[in-house]
Design a protein around this nucleic acid. Sequence first.
RNA 1: CGAGGUGUGGCUCAGUUUGGUAGAGCGCUACGUUCGGGACGUAGAAGCCGCAGGUUCGAAUCCUGUCACCUCGACCA
Length: 571
Amino acid sequence: MKLKNLVGDRFKNRPSDCQIDSHAIMIRGGYIKYMANGIFSSYTPVKRITRKIEQIIREEMDAIDGQEVQFPVVMPAGIWEESGRYESIGSELLRFRDRNGSPMVLGMTHEEASVHLVREYAQSYTKYPFMIYQIQTKFRDEARPRGGLIRVREFTMKDAYSFHTSQEDLEEYYEKCHKAYERIFRRCGVPEVVSVKSDSGMMGGSVSHEFMLLTPVGEDSIAICSECGYSANMEASESIVENTRDEFSQSLEKVFTPNIHTIEEVCDFLKTPVEKSCKAVVYQKNEDDSYVTVFLRGDMDVNETKLRNLIGAEIHPAVITEESCLHAGFIGPVGISENTMVLFDSSLKNTNNLSCGANEDEYHFTGLDLSRDVPNAEYHDLAKIKDGGICPCCRKKSISVSRGIEVGNIFQLGTKYTKAMGMTYLDSEGNSQYPIMGCYGIGVGRLSASVCEAHHDDYGPIWPMPIAPWQVHICAVRSDNEQVRATADNLYKTLTDMGIEVIYDDREVSAGVMFADADLLGVPLRVIVSPRNLKDNCCELVSRDKTFSDKKSVGEVANAVAEYVKEKMNI
RNA sequence: CGAGGUGUGGCUCAGUUUGGUAGAGCGCUACGUUCGGGACGUAGAAGCCGCAGGUUCGAAUCCUGUCACCUCGACCA
């Protein structure tokens, strides 16, 4: 199409309320228009981008046997009452009543709808497994939208739901979906998206991953190990922070004099009854029979799960007593402060040392004989992971913490929704079973904004060819010149006939305006037709990212463009 | 929901302290001169100064209330 017909203003000033670049660019470039808090309209360029992203998603979902369906945006409260989420979700779920006074909700996610859709169909194990997905508008009444399309209240999302008859089958499919996601992000031009372990939050279930585009403006903090590839959202990451022995000892002395305390003294300090003061978790290492002992405070149940993931071994809870300490190789009382755990290994066996735990501000227990050198002792605070900290997986000091935008996620849901909503099937032996579910989401609009955030310069976005609003941008500099106009018109027609998507700027404006607008549209390949070039009977090809430029004779330019486009489409 | 900030043509902002006819630049319209990185001249159009009360001869400006937005928290399939 011709640029002069494109609806939407492009302008020079950065709007003052835009905090992040992608937001400013999308406003300045005529991509989106603000309507209300967290609610935007999209102009043609961003609509074309998201349409292409959606098409890529469709192809990859279909390739793993997904079936596209569509759920309603407006749903009766009833099915949300079945799952229990009508009550459990807060004001993020928009509730209202229809003309008859029936309670309704605006869909913010569609687990309930997906179960509702298939629970009559899938009553036999022979129907499984299957996956259904949709690409559709969702509404979440977010407390604080921000960053243009990064965090909005109304948005388009691809959400998929798979149903299985065994955990193994779910895990196998989950892995397939994980790989499909990697292909999607690669094809959208952001192969740098990483998957990280995450908390499953209100979705329920156990295993989940988030797909994060790493960028300083992201809302989440992610810990990544450069050595072993471990990665996790900070919310979910187990962490190990090493304290040097000196720091540790110094801090410890502020709280206790270095001598042996009784368990009563420690418990008194911790304000915890003796009988339920602590529990020890002891497990046996694979190698050389040595022990690692972890002491948890009695009410730290949540960390037990994390710990199991961390250690990858059975854990044996026991109330700490003199006996259990002895068993673990230690003598005397042990206490742990809130959010603090201590790991140490059995090379300490038969010393008189007890362990000490630390958090950032306080060191809460004692028994350590500071006069003795204990070279193998490790003092760890598992409460917070830090930049430069120790990787919980490979134990090297190789953790780096980055910010990231969550552009997708995948969950192993289990039977939470099928149970709650009474969906069952008969297995091959005639027993009634609950199907096991997985769910898989990608925020389409957020992904487009994330690509912009990851690939832009001071002048505008640099869209990857597969999702660019147009593939080629023709600038007819001095279109009042007859030869320029004729050449550019002809090139526009030729390329369009070849099936290439062209935005054609034949306005009679100065070159500066023309190039600035082209930069804001971010089309990956630009063809400049101008009197200066035509003097040599050629046209100029320039890539938006400035890494490529070439001159081709007027006769060759169309083929050269087609070749370039074709090459860049296959990334 | 808590703390702070901002509301003035489409955009960026000045004017508010000390009340006195509504301002600039960009953008927009017309004509002319320019023409490879947001050119210039001339002439125009466009604003109930977020909204509602109040004080005053007179309010963008002072007072009260309210709404919206921004930032930081809380929250967040």
